[in-house]
């Protein structure tokens, strides 16, 4: 009986972790089920999910771009060489 309870009922921290993973589509169906169960009765989880979804939506809608690590390292290297020339 105890095992059954812990199977579907998760802690608030676990719910937040699953919610984070869900933002990147990395939560499994079972994890989403557990999150939904907690969502039904936990106010903290509900507000966390709402805020997290809002952040995901805002960043997606901004269409922002950034340099990847190798591009940044290359730029840094070129810049350091130029900086040395200036000094």
């Amino acid at each position: 009986m105890k095992q059954k309870k812990s199977f579907l009922f998760i802690s608030c921290d676990e719910a937040k972790h699953i919610c984070d993973k869900a933002q990147y589509k990395e939560a499994s169906i079972l994890e989403k089920m557990k999150l939904n169960v907690r969502y039904l009765w936990c106010k903290v989880t509900r507000s966390y999910i709402k805020r997290n979804k809002k952040l995901t939506h805002t960043i997606k809608s901004s269409n922002i771009n950034c340099l990847n690590n190798s591009e940044k390292q290359h730029l840094q290297k070129q810049f350091k060489q130029e900086l040395k020339k200036q000094q």
């Binding site: 269409n63 922002i64 771009n65 950034c66 340099l67 940044k72 730029l75 840094q76 810049f79 900086l83």
Partner: peptide, 24 residues
Amino acid sequence: NPDNWINKYSDYLFNYTISRVNDR
């Protein structure tokens, strides 16, 4: 402080530029 320029501003400048020139 040019030592911090790449870390602090490269992403911001890149995003600003790519939204205007559409060529990575």
